[in-house]
Design a protein around this nucleic acid. Structure first.
Lengths: 340, 340
DNA sequence: CTGAAAGCGCTTACAG
DNA sequence: CTGAAAGCGCTTACAG
């Protein structure tokens, strides 16, 4: 039996009051006679009335929700981001709405439009996105924080990982372990994180008078499978590299399984390091050395920036924050076993 | 400079047409003169106009969005669910809105209300939720699919993992390996998955004339840390169990790290198995045996059920689907090394 | 303490 | 091909 959704009107009618009164009851606002209140609540319950958020939002011009736009979601990285963001949103009395898996440009645009009407502000994590696309698809003056995006200008708050610094430090560390032939498994093409990490890697080599070499730079796309494939390619190189720098941990995990399959000893024959330090990294065997980023901190800080922007009605000086990284050194690069 | 959000009215005025025409242009509907269309588009672009989804939704009584309500999000499990759901939603031209980290009952209720107005249907994954709570917090006749929830009755579609069967089969397998003292690390209390898995474990013992023993049933909450703690407790038991059945992989990962820390050989001294078969399980060392569930299949199927419900205006016979499990047998229980 | 009415931003039969 | 007007479900000054 299909019944129409019950609205405030019907409740009002059945209770013999105006919609204004019902609204007051449901928002716990203004003075309402105790008896009236009880009657309205009873009727509402009997009718299974629940206020329609869309009507409400349109009226008050506020949604109390924050949107988080993500690229392809997989692995632990994104659940950590979501977790940090969700917690912080709730602390600030916002609900978090997540939308994911947008790889193609038109998907992103569609998602932007869908989200933009439903939230008071937006955290956007979308690798290749230009300012123009954002401006044409978002309402003027919607508070926005760009997470790991490459967008210049002063229109938006932004938050980035220190990819360059982290990658450079890690590659330096490998050199200090005595490695001279260090292969890198690159991240997704045209992805900002990927590019910066590669740049950091190259910089470290140069600083140590090692010429970067195209043969050592293997394509990858941040997935475990691509790491697996890349490792196989690397193992076939002659002379064989003695260390592998995977541009993220998922690819390092894939590489790890390839190396184990072939029976290569890590770190003795080949050292292996990753980037992100996802929670599972320390539980791998050998425990994976990685560039540590506070992943859920990413979510937390982005939401804090956004909440600030919303409170200021987006009328504030935009902030460009860079999150520092550190090295989590474990067995896979030859450092002593720890569970740091 | 704070400017008000630009609306359809302003575009209409600046373009010298009615709002109806602007609407037609933006929805690519009805006949609009090519010149008029171009003019409207130009003005809209110049003004950075983007249609307000809330106004639209209210008018057409449709949101083209589906909501996914999750409990605490962490680890790979949830990203996999989200991924499956997102993909399937997009295939059906719906946008997926995810809301997570609802543990307390009032948080869940708030989330239900917030979501319910913004979507055309809802997939709800919330371990302990009763039919009454759902009914009072959701609009009558909103299509809902319950994922891994324990709600009786015929009002909602539901989707569950065969937790009992999977756990029973895995415990049987351990017995076949010769284990007589099998400890179990339990999942979160009052969680349906947790209870069913425990029930399956006990059933297997009984079928093999092994008396279930309270000392072997260690508390846990599905997190890595709780698995770590539980393993320490188990190692102190005398006589010591020869196998550990963790109620999910995250806890197995925690247990793994505790065992390695103490220097216990897996599987020789203690066999270890998990549940879920998250992607990283096969990459652990030793590779983790686990009860395999198609996690992203969970998301996929739930969305398919929901889309069907929406199309039928919720006026269909409700379906109760149970997803089967299988055993992914690897090194950690003493089975040969494979990367299946 | 309560209600009539305007308004939030859109869509859509209807009439022209 | 185009517009005036009603309506979607709510909130909120304003008046009483």
């Amino acid at each position: 039996m299909l019944r129409k959704r019950v609205t405030i009107k019907e409740v009002a009618k059945k209770a013999g009051v105006s919609t204004a009164t019902v609204s007051r009851v449901f928002n716990n606002i203004g003075p309402v006679d105790a008896g009236t209140r009880r009657r309205v609540q009873q009727i509402a319950k009997r009718l299974h009335y629940t206020p329609n958020a869309v009507g409400r939002s349109l009226s008050i011009k506020r949604t109390d929700a924050i949107g988080l736009l993500l690229p392809d979601i997989f692995g632990e990285f994104f659940s950590e981001v979501i977790r940090g963001a969700d917690q912080t949103a709730q602390q600030n009395r916002y609900h978090l709405l997540v939308s994911g898996s947008h790889t193609h440009r038109d998907e992103v645009e569609a998602a932007l439009r869908v989200m933009s009407g439903r939230v008071d502000g937006l955290v956007i994590m979308s690798p290749h996105l230009d300012a123009q696309t954002l401006k044409t698809n978002l309402p003027l003056n919607l508070p926005v924080v760009l997470l790991n995006c490459f967008v210049d200008g002063v229109s938006f708050d932004s938050l980035n990982i220190d990819n360059f610094g982290g990658a450079c430090a890690m590659a330096q560390h490998l050199v200090q372990h005595g490695h001279q032939r260090i292969a890198v498994i690159k991240g997704t093409e045209k992805n900002l994180d990927a590019e910066e990490r590669l740049r950091g890697y190259r910089q470290a080599l140069r600083e140590n008078r090692i010429a970067p070499c195209a043969a050592w730079e293997i394509a990858g796309n941040f997935s475990e499978t691509s790491g697996y494939e890349a490792a196989k390619t690397i193992l076939a190189l002659r002379p064989r590299p003695t260390a592998i720098f995977a541009s993220n941990d998922s690819m390092a995990i894939g590489a790890l399984s390839a190396l184990r399959e072939i029976g290569v000893d890590i770190p003795r024959e080949i050292a292996l390091v990753g980037f992100d330090d996802i929670p599972v990294a320390r539980f791998l065997s050998p425990a994976l050395s990685s560039v540590r980023v506070s992943i859920n901190g990413l979510g937390t800080i982005a939401i804090k920036q956004l909440v600030h922007a919303i409170r200021e009605k987006n009328n504030h000086t935009k902030q460009h924050v860079i999150i520092p990284t550190s090295l989590a050194l474990r067995e896979s690069c030859g450092c002593p076993k720890t569970l740091q």
